[in-house]
Design a protein around this nucleic acid. Sequence first.
DNA 1: AGCGGCTTGGAAAGCGGTTTCTAAAGCCGT
DNA 2: ACGGCTTTAGAAACCGCTTTCCAAGCCGCT
Lengths: 344, 344
Amino acid sequence: MNKRPTIRDVAALAGVSVATVSRVLSGDYPVAGNTRTKVQRAVRELDYVVNAHARALSGATSNVVALVMYDVVTPFFAHIASGVEYQATESDRLCLVCTTHGDPDRELEIVKLMREQHADAVILVGGVLMNDDYRERMYRYAKGLEDAGSRLVLCGRPSLGPDFPAITVEYDNAGGAYAATSHLLSAGHRRIVLLGGPVGNTTFDARLDGYRRAMEAFRVPVDPALVVHDDMSQDAGFRQTQRLLAAGADFTAIFAANDLAAAGAMRALRAAGKRVPDDVSIIGYDDTPMAPELFPALTSVHLPHEELGRTAVKLALQRGENSTRQHVMLGTHIAMRDSVRPLI
Amino acid sequence: MNKRPTIRDVAALAGVSVATVSRVLSGDYPVAGNTRTKVQRAVRELDYVVNAHARALSGATSNVVALVMYDVVTPFFAHIASGVEYQATESDRLCLVCTTHGDPDRELEIVKLMREQHADAVILVGGVLMNDDYRERMYRYAKGLEDAGSRLVLCGRPSLGPDFPAITVEYDNAGGAYAATSHLLSAGHRRIVLLGGPVGNTTFDARLDGYRRAMEAFRVPVDPALVVHDDMSQDAGFRQTQRLLAAGADFTAIFAANDLAAAGAMRALRAAGKRVPDDVSIIGYDDTPMAPELFPALTSVHLPHEELGRTAVKLALQRGENSTRQHVMLGTHIAMRDSVRPLI
DNA sequence: AGCGGCTTGGAAAGCGGTTTCTAAAGCCGT
DNA sequence: ACGGCTTTAGAAACCGCTTTCCAAGCCGCT
């Protein structure tokens, strides 16, 4: 195994100093065309490539962006990863990917590793359960990253406090829910069920809020009987819809705060002999891959996952005044399909 | 922005030399318990983390595994990535992910970047179109990687020659096709259509070969009229099956060399009033996410994507004699569902 | 007491780049 | 021919760690 050539070998072959070689390779520093050519020829001849570690050690930046998320196969995460990778490449960075599988300790360990790697940006996606120890350590690591000149980006998860040194990027859940509810209201629906999530969950609280605000904007009173809270599983959607039907609740549309619950609701409606969208219109949230596959194809609030990833990287790499602590909300749009129809 | 502490700061605070600190942190080198404690306390106090680049520059290894593939969202690639990431973590390595989107130049550029990064392993997944320039450059890069002590792994793509310094991991396509065909033969089928791919494509040639060998093993002559070649799209599966039906071909089962073609075939059969599996049994290949969703759920040859990823990393990291050039074939199994039934 | 062997800790030489500081050319006008 | 200015190139000091080479201290032994 022949040793790889170093910059000194190139310098020797080209008959110049290592400083000159370095400048030819990476600098905007002026080098005479003649010298430049000699160096480039030597580089080609030796098949020389720079050592990224030496460069990172000497210079300031590692040109690496780190992505930390739950896993890599779930479409939600895969699409975010796609956006991150795309933008990282666009910005001449490499992309490290790590998975936590929901383990907070593992996440902390990864963030620590990223500190060792001096990653330009560390992007944390999705939530983990936090306890006090987690908060304390994450806080310390975040400070450490800041000291080292790395940026921390939190995607779709709450910050750890107002002075927590991180960029936050999230979906406008309230806005999406507002748009979905308005869509139904504009179609003439007034009696709209909200299949909501557990109270206290920031995501679902925001979606509930959007529902409320849209109803208010259309001057439609919210009937508490039509607002339900459950765990957002398909079963929950089924169960809650069945319960409403059994109770003889009066409604012409359902806004499910995720697609899973919407699918459950559709099943319950079908079981009760109700037709979608003829008898009941329904709109979901998240626009998961299942939405277009359902029958009828489910209209759903689409979340721009790839854009989330791209935005995270862009914000992290843009250097400027107080760019370490920003909060960005990404707009959503409705993927129109066949599960909503105007009320005659 | 306070500067991050270095090993010298730790040494100073602990009142020992940098060599001792280094040994405490990474060595199996014996250090007195007393000294060790002092160092660890200093590390904690300063919130010190090693600089991975300095370590990589000084030591030999970067502890990074690079994965290069078409994209990150296609389930096939996502699952391989999952396996790679899993095994990399298991082996205390980080995982760099890059996408090519099928562009050979981009792929070469990435491999060059990985040379700069001194990745322990570079894993190339899936095929790209090769021309002479590509071969020449890839060959040179592969040599460079070998010189630098990195391992190159080719997953599911042909090697560039017998002396090409790379590990090859692939699915046993012939074996999978043999198993699939045997499965139909064991169920009593004799007139079995093969929906095959373009001649000259190594993957589909191997699957054809497996079909042939299974037929031979059961002493069933292969009827050339039942062996078709097309582009393996859903349309092709539909078209070819329709053609066979129109020609009045005599068959009781179809082995489609991928799930897409199988889906097309099922559509054609249904259109012709044939029932699956009552009139015609059908088996697919690849066990894509669509297979269980089809009606009836498609029996298909399952490929262990995650295992492929794990194996690639394991082989790359195992250091030993002539471990740079191996060829491993991964076995497949049949995911049994509802599209095959015994011929009475 | 003197000595070899073992454990432990330090000094210093890399690893392969970037960058600062300095000096040699080259150019111009006079 | 010479002084001053701009290019261009080199020497050397880092960046932060690992590891080799040594030396000191301590042990048991003769």
